[in-house]
Design a protein around this nucleic acid. Structure first.
Lengths: 208, 208
DNA sequence: TAGATTGTTAATCGATTAACAATC
DNA sequence: TAGATTGTTAATCGATTAACAATC
């Protein structure tokens, strides 16, 4: 793998991996053109993206599907097991706790926190809801690598600060806020209403 | 508003709107620098983005917060009420049905579909779960503008095809698949494992 | 060899941002 | 007027893609 993979490329790697999973059922080899088709991108882009992985396809043949999956998994760091903590056991936090896709990709939900005393102690998605006071302790003890913020907007920043303070360097933020974090902390934002509003922009804008 | 707003700008408009909501509590006017700060972008970018709305700030003063919010809402098409249908009443579909943020932004969930006979007829988030057979009828009758796909990956494409067939032109896809749709249909993809994998890429990649 | 497809270059395209004249 | 801040230009930066030599 070369030094610096462009952000746009990184965000496409998981998509390629997913597409290859489907392909692997039917074929041993695939061309950049095939992969591009199902991933919804240009084939030159596929080849360029894969070249960052030092990937070796075979001219005239294509890429070995299994080999490429292995390379993508390695590049994405999916050979390691990562501990995940979810903060907020409301609708979304509960849905996330019940999500069984974590294990598939080597993520383990090791804690689920909430402030609500009526929720603390109950079990959600196989996880006991812990009081938020234990955040620092648990994050440290379980070496939590990724924090998921599933709180209301009002508490998101404080939660993020505490996660970062406890050593978390990667945050997935479902709260409708832009988190302010130190350089070196990676935040990905997932917001339903933002997505809906982008759709409505195109819906109501005359062509485009 | 000028003819063509760049995609990158469109995706930032909802963020500005959100940030202004917070600001409006404390001040009547804000500079591009302030807005940039809380939105986490460059101030020149804020000014450029807002200029696409035909927005008129006041030199030496900044932007009128309320006026700008109004312009953003109009630009994003939030003056209209949009009917939304959710397909899939599992963990995620249920969480979405319970989400009370839809109303805030002028979205109305008019239907929730599932294939599971044990779910059909039950109530989730104030919505009766309808059998998937009724998809076309309901989409037409209620003029559904936005379809939310919250099914497993295996059924996502078929659901999308049916939504599009019934006239839906905007899809929010939570299933871990890349949907193939006709040109003119807008799809936004929200995928938890993609986001997690992007985080792990940066976690395990030595600096960058 | 002929056909297919990669890996990479170079051209293009689009997005970001520094800089500054305009102006409140 | 002096200070602040916009709106916009032009420079920069980065990402996409057409094209093609290399080669299986």
């Amino acid at each position: 793998m070369k030094q610096s993979v462009p952000a746009a490329t990184v965000s496409r790697l998981p998509i390629y991996l997913r597409c290859l999973k489907d392909l692997s059922a039917t074929q041993e080899t695939c061309s950049s053109e095939e992969l591009a088709q199902i991933a919804g991108v240009n084939s030159a882009q596929v080849r360029k993206d894969l070249s960052f992985l030092g990937s070796q396809g075979t001219r005239g043949v294509g890429y070995d599907v299994e080999e490429l999956r292995r390379q993508l998994r390695t590049a994405l760091g999916l050979d390691t097991e990562y501990a995940v903590a979810i903060v907020g056991a409301g609708n979304l936090g509960s849905a996330l706790s019940n999500y069984d896709g974590f294990g598939t990709w080597g993520f383990e939900v090791v804690a689920l926190f909430d402030t609500d005393p009526t929720k603390v102690g109950s079990e959600v998605g196989g996880h006991e809801v812990l009081p938020i006071d234990q955040l620092e302790t648990v994050v440290t003890q379980r070496s939590v690598a990724i924090g998921i913020v599933a709180t209301p907007a009002g508490s998101a920043q404080e939660v993020a600060d505490r996660l970062v303070g406890a050593g978390v360097r990667s945050i997935l933020n479902f709260a409708p806020t832009v988190l302010q974090v130190d350089q070196g902390v990676e935040v990905r934002r997932v917001d339903l209403s933002t997505e809906l509003q982008i759709l409505t922009f195109h819906l109501h804008t005359p062509a485009g």
